[in-house]
């Protein structure tokens, strides 16, 4: 017999290393003699989209397109330490470092432009595609390249650092501000369970993610799909079968993860509530997207067949056994 049920789960996630540990990101930026912009920061692109989303930050500030941002992050010889690519901290921490660096460089360029164009501080300047012009009289303009040609290039190099603010917790009571910012989310699923085989299908899935501000919604959507799939594996499939310290399931014929055929069409909802200490309000979501999924599945199982599963993964065998036990 097929039985269906619904379940939800909600979550919070504290970003960063936490507990007062220095959570530091550095970035360095420059304009070269051709007017090109390069930013150096050791944030890793591990598939999450850092190379794209982080490059959107200087692009926004300097009025250039993302493809014109040269983002050097792969080599310790050229880049500065941006901390680990973990704890959902790169958009927030390194994003902040890149924002500060880009803003400082913009200020330098602005001052140079005023000097050369003979404009006072009252005049508004616009940055657009490697050019700076006066808003009131766009004919008064100068390119990044012209500025670079007019000064020592060292003057067009700048380095900034960002450090997240958390405090160490009291060892006896836990009192303190261990993480910042916090990110929130919710998941709801509907499942259909075959009570004769223990097989489970997710027939409807909704994932809602607070992001502070969405820097790149498509990348967030990708993270949400990936996070859902990973959580689905965590809740239902993945078992290393460790016996006396030995991993028995050490390849993908035995260690089952969701395949394309298991993937669920997830309805994804992004909630924005900009965080003032974050770059343009953006919080990290790499980890949070995974967190509320497994509990939603477990609650849906209970709603469907009345068994409370307290141990994951809920493989068909385990589910079938539990269903039989409650009769």
């Amino acid at each position: 017999m097929k039985k269906s049920g619904k379940g939800i789960g909600i979550m919070f996630y504290g970003t960063g290393y936490g507990n007062g540990y220095p959570d530091v990101s550095r970035a360095k930026a420059k304009i070269d003699h051709t007017g090109r912009f390069t930013i150096y920061s050791g944030a890793c692109e591990v598939g999450q989209g850092a190379k794209t989303a982080l490059a959107q930050i200087p692009a926004e500030i300097l009025g250039i397109s993302t493809k014109d941002v040269i983002f050097d992050h792969e080599d310790t010889k050229t880049t500065l330490d941006a901390g680990t690519c973990a704890a959902s901290r790169q958009t927030y921490n390194t994003g902040n470092a890149m924002k500060l660096t880009s803003e400082s460089l913009k200020k330098i360029l602005e001052n140079k432009a005023r000097e050369i164009l003979n404009l006072n501080k009252e005049q508004t300047l616009i940055f657009n595609d490697h050019h700076i012009y006066q808003k009131a009289d766009p004919s008064k303009q100068i390119s990044f390249k012209q500025i670079a040609g007019s000064c020592d290039l060292k003057e067009l190099e700048i380095e900034e650092v960002f450090q997240a603010v958390t405090t160490e917790m009291n060892e006896e009571t836990g009192e303190g501000n261990p993480y910042w910012p916090y990110t929130f989310g919710a998941c709801g699923v509907e499942v259909e369970i075959d009570t004769e085989t223990g097989g489970l299908d997710i027939t409807n899935a909704i994932l809602v993610q607070d992001v502070g501000r969405a820097v790149n919604p498509k990348l967030i959507e990708g993270q949400m799909d990936g996070g859902f799939a990973m959580a689905q594996g965590y809740a239902l499939l993945e078992d290393l079968n460790i016996v006396k310290g030995e991993i028995k399931h050490h390849n993908f014929t035995k260690y089952l993860i969701p395949t394309a055929l298991d993937a669920v069409e997830v309805k994804k909802i992004i909630v924005e509530d900009p965080e003032s200490s974050a770059p343009f309000g953006a919080k990290g979501i790499g980890e949070p997207v995974m967190i509320p999924v497994a509990p939603a599945i477990l609650n849906a199982i209970y709603d469907a067949v009345g068994v409370r599963i307290t141990e994951i993964p809920v493989t068909p065998e385990k589910l079938l056994k539990a269903i039989k036990e409650v009769g």
Partner: peptide, 27 residues
């Protein structure tokens, strides 16, 4: 600041009941 958990839950409930989302800021 930035604690939109209630809005997340509202959006989830609306979506599960196939109702329009309650909040214009939500994508």
């Amino acid at each position: 600041e930035s604690v939109p958990l209630g809005r997340c839950l509202d959006a989830l409930e609306a979506a599960m009941n196939e109702k329009p989302l309650p909040d214009k800021d939500i994508n």
